[in-house]
Design a protein around this nucleic acid. Sequence first.
DNA 1: AGTCTATAGTGGTATAGACCAGGATTGACC
DNA 2: GGTCAATCCTGGTCTATACCACTATAGACT
Lengths: 241, 241
Amino acid sequence: MELNANSPIPLYIQLKELLVRQIRRGELRPHDRLPSERELSECYGISRMTVRQALQLLVKEGVLYTAAGKGTYVSEVLFEQDHALTGFSEQMQRANLQASSRVLEATVIPATPYVAGKLEVSPNSGVILLKRLRLANEKPVAIETAYLPQNLCPDLLRHDFSRASLYAVLREEYGLVPTTAIQVVEAALANVEEARLLELHPPAAVLRMERVTRNAQNAVLEYVESVYRGDRYKFYAHLRA
Amino acid sequence: MELNANSPIPLYIQLKELLVRQIRRGELRPHDRLPSERELSECYGISRMTVRQALQLLVKEGVLYTAAGKGTYVSEVLFEQDHALTGFSEQMQRANLQASSRVLEATVIPATPYVAGKLEVSPNSGVILLKRLRLANEKPVAIETAYLPQNLCPDLLRHDFSRASLYAVLREEYGLVPTTAIQVVEAALANVEEARLLELHPPAAVLRMERVTRNAQNAVLEYVESVYRGDRYKFYAHLRA
DNA sequence: AGTCTATAGTGGTATAGACCAGGATTGACC
DNA sequence: GGTCAATCCTGGTCTATACCACTATAGACT
């Protein structure tokens, strides 16, 4: 269980992942105390500052917590790194569910004033509309309608989005990486069309979500309206001041 | 514009706040390059590692971004310190609604295993339970049940929480400042008790939320279970990668 | 037994120096 | 004029050391 100083992977990352593995394997359990920074430093033959770099990362991620004068401890829950900014496909993969989709609509339309406002583009400019029924293990979970500025991702619709992940295509083909999003979520009763598509028997509760996603340069990548089955979807968010 | 080495405030925090002030005043504008780490180090008479501590904090917060081999730059938006981590009272104030509460329960209980896990405290240790009906302009909006570690805020319950804001008391009296939270939101149909308290006529949709709130030291401040009226509450979240 | 007081250990802060890979600039060369 | 290589600067990583405030413990004292 040693660190490799010649590896291209930084030592503090190696140590961080080593600790995460120990926690995942149960060798370190919640509220266990870790060896002190000085012990880790000596044990792995690296300096204390490097140890601290690894530990601080894990504290920031919520995996560990520290108590000055006492020690460093394993947190109760090891939250999965950020559900926050992943698409449906990635979320399902994380939950070990098989994601699939049925494309309900895939066209280019002129931006309505409302959508133009959300996307921060001119009205009537080209907007890609992608409406899909989302399924997990073949069972309907959500209806998702995404609007994207056509100039950011021309020819997007040549992909088959019944199988392809929108976020994966944006990232790999167009270099568009979501980094922030503003979401609004509310609860409501399913209407007739929603009940039909989601195979619900009214009355049934659904989660309605709107989201505007931006990249690091603060450009709007997409505006999405989604409707989730209340009984098959929970909505995680990690908030920071 | 100097740093004070004798101040109880760490140098890297002082530098961080100094940079934020410069950005707020417009002396540093989006996409401007900051002086290099070595220049800042010499300019303020502190070591480069201390400079990096300040810069890394700001990068983590999204205020700055770095490009290896090029420099450190100001991000496009300095997000409003946001809706994310405020309590019900603050949210209502922002929406120009008059917040009030009816205390349904306010006691100290021994931590159940489940709550102890959420709060990262020992089972059976003292936990403050505060259950309130939340109203906006006299109309019921939510039922909120908060659990707090008693050792963090002893005597909390001597306040009258039908009027006082929990977050304001935590901040002003105990110096407890929420900085991160993990929330889980789902939609459901209101049960009988919820419908009665929220004055709903079934069937009606509600938003159920669980939240674990932590401070900058990653200590758990509270665990909250809330039930919101779907028609009177929208749930905002600002997410970052 | 109970209380106080060193003392040792912990994380938090800070310094000074070093090397690396990658971007940017300059200048020699064709 | 255009190309390529050397050079310098940048952030990224890492070491070794030091002092502080806080916590726990063990031992001396009452």
